[in-house]
Simulated scan of single mutants.
Amino acid sequence: MTRKFFAFLLVLASFALLYAPTAAQDNVIVDGLNSPRGMAYDADGNLYVAEAGVGGSVSVAGNDELGSGTVGGTSQVTMIAPDGTQSVAVAALPSLSTGPEGLGVVHMVITSESMWLVLNEGVPMLPFADSVIELDRATGRMTNFIDLYAYEQDNNPDGTDEIYSNPTDVALADDGTLYIVDTGANTLYTWTEADGLQVFKSWGDDPVPTSVDFAPDGTLYVGFLGQGIAPGAARIDHLDANGEVIEMFGNLTAVTDIVVTDDGALYAVQMLQFGEQGPAPESGSVVAVTADGATPVQEGLNFPYGLEETPDGDLVVSVNAAFVDPGTGAVMLIPLGEM
């Protein structure tokens, strides 16, 4: 993901600050969040939400990609029980704020024993930036640290001039292999304790991969933001076990997350659309994606980001995920049975 892309996000942030989000949408199941991103359910039906946070009280000079900002322990993982009870599952994770956008924990995988957390880009003094960490659920102790930035620095798998890491998503295969999307490196990695990080597939044309999920048959889907977030430039690739493209779904815009439901249906989040004045408020959507194109499932969303299937077969989506005031993030239920 290039510096030009980050500069575009800063312009987008400036535009968004001129717009105050409207009142909470229908079917909100939790609100008051700070930059909610990816989500996951555990076997007991608890919903976990990654909150990237709002930085902190320490000012930092930043780097070429991020500029100046503040850091602090405001990123966290929030848990919502099936009865609606809300609690903090993991507190005080490092967060960087460059203004209206928080950077911190962005996605996760929950197993019976572990929480795998993706912490996206940050400044050099920010602990665990550009990494995936494993926490023991019983003790909260870190049991694995996967340094995506170090691998990018040593190997630069997409072959571009930039050394840039920004992990954004993770998926766990049945055999225990982790699949990790590094958006900045334009690379999908695998990781096992035995083999460490391995390049599964890398893209040299900067398509900006953002998300990964498994189909019921074990094949993979990868979502792309699209270079420069250009309208229609986003896509989803369906990959076989060797990383070869089985099929491609194009003409999407700003895909930030995807989910393949238990029945094999493919859904995607489009973070925004563009109007005459640029990125339009409340223009994000969740769409069902097939060979015939994208069918809207929920429109009018303000900066949505994460998507997950509920235990009942519906969907949840995080909204007001970036470029809005602190505490305005939320998670909405999308009942598929009402379609």
Rank of each mutant, 00 (worst) to 15 (best):
N156G: 06
G196C: 03
A171H: 10
D217N: 15
W203G: 01
T210Q: 14
S131D: 08
G122E: 12
Q153H: 10
W203C: 01
D205C: 01
T177Q: 08
V212L: 10
T177L: 06
S114G: 00
I110W: 00
P157V: 03
P167W: 13
T192N: 07
D174P: 02
F145Y: 15
S211H: 04
D195E: 15
D174C: 00
G204Q: 04
F224I: 03
V118P: 09
E152Q: 15
V199M: 04
T183Y: 12
L178Q: 05
L119N: 02
V170H: 11
P127N: 05
D158W: 03
V118A: 05
N186D: 15
M125E: 14
L135C: 03
S211Y: 06
D169N: 14
D158P: 11
V109M: 08
F224E: 05
G223H: 11
I163P: 03
S165P: 04
I163Q: 06
Y149N: 12
I110T: 04
Q198C: 03
S112E: 15
V199Q: 08
D169R: 10
A129P: 00
D136R: 08
Y179A: 07
S131Q: 10
Y164G: 00
V199A: 04
N144V: 14
P167Y: 13
N166Q: 11
D174Y: 00
P124T: 01
A194K: 13
T190I: 12
T187F: 12
G159N: 02
V118N: 04
P209R: 12
N144K: 13
I163T: 04
A138Y: 02
P167L: 12
N166F: 10
S202N: 08
D174Q: 11
P157E: 01
N155L: 06
R141L: 14
D217H: 04
I163H: 07
M125S: 15
D174F: 05
A194V: 06
D205T: 08
T177E: 12
G204N: 08
I146E: 10
H107P: 00
Y189H: 14
L126T: 07
D158A: 01
F214E: 08
P157H: 06
G122K: 11
S165C: 08
